[in-house]
Every structure is written in structure tokens, then in C-alpha cells.
């Protein structure tokens, strides 16, 4: 089984409840700077969206780790940092093409979204169901829809340039 956070940007209101919930899990305080999910706000485009690890299949963070400190949770499929093994070399941070692996300033170890062991706090806190938990093992139909939207916009932009 593989799960991931399904994010529907159109539903985001930019309220940051996800960041607050995540930071509460990480630190026991409300501290958005420690959140592993980030809300991006593009005011000129009136676009907001949370953004975090896709739990991707290739998982370069995992592949690149020299000490095998990133493993797969067999229940959720999440790629999880094993803090005891991590030496803080930051190779995963460099390798992740999505920028969703971080080095914690307090522990100097890698940190990333682990889906809270199956019940992600961000999804629970989201008031608009913009963030939900989805089965990502087959189809990827929702990522495909997003990708086609993005690519359509990209094509439009290219035409505008021509």
C-alpha cells in the first residue's frame, strides 16, 4: 500500500492550519517555521497552495542516503527518516527534486514529511478538505489531472511568447 497527501490547490484559503498542525507535531508549539508542509501564496495570481513531500516512488532522498537512514513505512508507504541513523550530511536535501527534505536547525538531522504514521495532522486540520489522504499505489489519476493543467498553462505561455 502506498499513500500520499492529495492536495487540491483550488480549495486552499491560505489559512495555514496545516502548517500549524504540522509544527505542533514537530515541536509541541505553534511554529510555522518548523512545519514540513508549506503554504505558498501568490497574491497577484490569487493562488495559494500547500506543498510537501509527494512520497514519490523513485525517492532520490532514499536512494542517495549513504547510511540508509531513510526507509519506507510498510503500512503507509511514507519515506521516513530514521533519526538515530542519520548523520546530517544533507545529501537528501540536495537530491530531492521537489525541495521537500530539510535539515533541522535544532537537531542537525534530516527531516521530512512521514505522513504522521498514517493520520496526517495537516489533513485533519484542513478546514476545506484541500488536503486529504489518498491511495497513490496505482493510477495517479489526480496527479495526472494537475500535471495536465500545469502543462496546458505552460503551452499557453509558450504561445504567448511566439
Amino acid at each position: 500500500m502506498a499513500t500520499a497527501l492529495r492536495i487540491d490547490p483550488d480549495k486552499c484559503t491560505g489559512c495555514m492550519q496545516c502548517e500549524l498542525a504540522c509544527s505542533w507535531v514537530q515541536t509541541g508549539q505553534f511554529q510555522p517555521s518548523a512545519s514540513l508542509i508549506k503554504v505558498f501564496i501568490f497574491d497577484e495570481q490569487a493562488a495559494y497552495t500547500p506543498y510537501t513531500c509527494f512520497q514519490c516512488n523513485e525517492a532520490w532522498c532514499m536512494t542517495v542516503c549513504p547510511v540508509n537512514a531513510i526507509g519506507v513505512n510498510p503500512v503507509t508507504g511514507a519515506k521516513v527518516v530514521l533519526e538515530d541513523a542519520c548523520v546530517g550530511c544533507a545529501l537528501c536535501v540536495i537530491a530531492c527534486p521537489f525541495g521537500t527534505a530539510y535539515l533541522s536547525p535544532s537537531t542537525h538531522k534530516a527531516t521530512k514529511c512521514d505522513l504522521c504514521g498514517g493520520e496526517p495532522a495537516c489533513a485533519m486540520a484542513c478546514p476545506t478538505e484541500c488536503i486529504t489522504v489518498a491511495d497513490s499505489s496505482n493510477g495517479q489519476e489526480w496527479t495526472a489531472r494537475l500535471a495536465s493543467q500545469v502543462s496546458a498553462r505552460f503551452q499557453e505561455m509558450l504561445q504567448g511568447l511566439a
Binding site: D10, T13, C15, M16, Q17, L20, A46, Y48, P127, T128
Partner: peptide
């Protein structure tokens, strides 16, 4: 175009 919330707001 859309609804926008202030920080931590669940009303928007």
C-alpha cells in the same frame, strides 16, 4: 475568484 482566509481562520 476565490475565498481567502486570515491566519488560522476556518471561516475564510
Amino acid at each position: 475568484i476565490r475565498n481567502k482566509a486570515c491566519f488560522a481562520c476556518t471561516i475564510a
